[in-house]
């Protein structure tokens, strides 16, 4: 089709293409690309809130300081724990739910899909404040239920105890993360080639065999996509921390995203915060690349 166009039509294609793109491109360049470039640039400076003083180019000083900053290292470790715990659980859980519900009739299917998606729609603030109440030391239902069933014998200050706080955060994160993967897996599983499934059943394959040999390879692209988005989401865990623990107690729930916020908006060290942002982006890129690699090998 390309080559059949006359030069005049070709020019028209170019011009109209750009005109259609223009409005979107203006927003994209101004509010996504430009701040990304600025993020990388200011990570090499000592930029702060004060716009009267010029920013000094300090090259890698921020990055060097980061590796000596115990809070940042703690935040990085916590973030990695969150990612490595929540990503596999989200994937396995949502695949299991999807495998049970995708064969259901339209009514129950959308009921379950909606229920698991609701925590996402409810919004991070509303979800977080109710969990804060449920975790509460005196009025929370967790202490009540666990105590009355005899699991614990005295109240636990869930969010105030460094042994539990991070796990409490992870539990909330899990409930707000499975909605989208379930929707994706349901649609992937219902697109699996049915004739293959039937053929293998005729040959006497068990349900488990059918699943791993036939379905699993076909939903691999979906799994990969889910791994990537869940990784990105877990890395960016912020609202839960800011509203529940502010990184405490004793940095037990400090995450990179929260520390970026703290550095930039409490300490006003924009350059230092941006350096952390760049490191975070690099970590996400590496993990996504590894996931792509692993998925390809299989």
């Amino acid at each position: 089709m390309d080559k059949t166009l006359s030069p005049k039509l070709r020019r028209q294609e170019n011009i109209s293409g750009y005109l259609f793109l223009l409005p979107s491109l203006v927003f994209f360049l101004a509010f996504v690309v430009y701040p990304m470039v600025m993020c990388i640039w200011t990570s090499f400076t000592d930029a702060n809130m004060n716009s009267n003083t010029a920013d000094h180019f300090i090259f890698l000083d921020n990055y060097i300081e980061l590796w000596k900053d115990p809070v940042f290292l703690k935040a990085l470790v916590n973030t990695l724990i969150i990612v490595f715990v929540s990503v596999p659980i989200v994937c396995i859980f949502s695949l299991w739910v999807a495998s049970v519900i995708h064969k259901m009739k339209e009514g129950p299917l959308s009921f379950f899909r909606i229920v698991f998606y609701l925590p996402v729609v409810t919004g991070s603030v509303a979800v977080t404040v109710v969990w804060k109440w449920m975790y509460n030391n005196y009025y929370g239902i967790f202490n009540y239920v666990l105590k009355s069933t005899g699991v614990i014998d005295k109240n636990i200050n869930w969010l105030g105890d460094s042994k539990f706080a991070l796990w409490c955060i992870i539990i909330i994160l899990l409930t707000t993360s499975v909605g989208q993967p379930i929707v994706l897996y349901v649609s992937a599983l219902s697109n699996v080639d049915h004739s293959l499934v039937e053929a293998s059943q005729v040959d006497g394959a068990t349900n488990t065999q059918v699943f791993w040999r036939i379905c699993w390879p076909q939903i691999m692209p979906t799994t990969l996509y889910i791994l990537v988005i869940t990784t990105i989401n877990s890395f960016q865990c912020f609202a839960l921390i800011q509203l529940l623990t502010s990184g405490g107690p004793n940095y037990a729930t400090e995450t990179v995203m929260y520390y970026i916020y703290y550095t930039a908006f409490k300490l006003y060290r924009f350059g230092y915060g941006n350096a952390m942002g760049v490191i975070l982006a690099i970590f996400i890129a590496i993990l996504s690349a590894v996931q792509f690699r692993l998925a390809k090998e299989k």
Binding site: G17, I232, F270, G277
Partner: peptide, 27 residues
């Protein structure tokens, strides 16, 4: 539309999507 630079532009869009959105908030 088959305009020049279309592939590059689309790659840029996909790459931007994979980046953490919150990183650009400070700038």
């Amino acid at each position: 539309k088959r305009f020049a630079g279309r592939v590059i532009l689309f790659s840029l869009i996909v790459a931007a999507m994979a980046l953490p959105k919150q990183v650009i908030l400070i700038p």
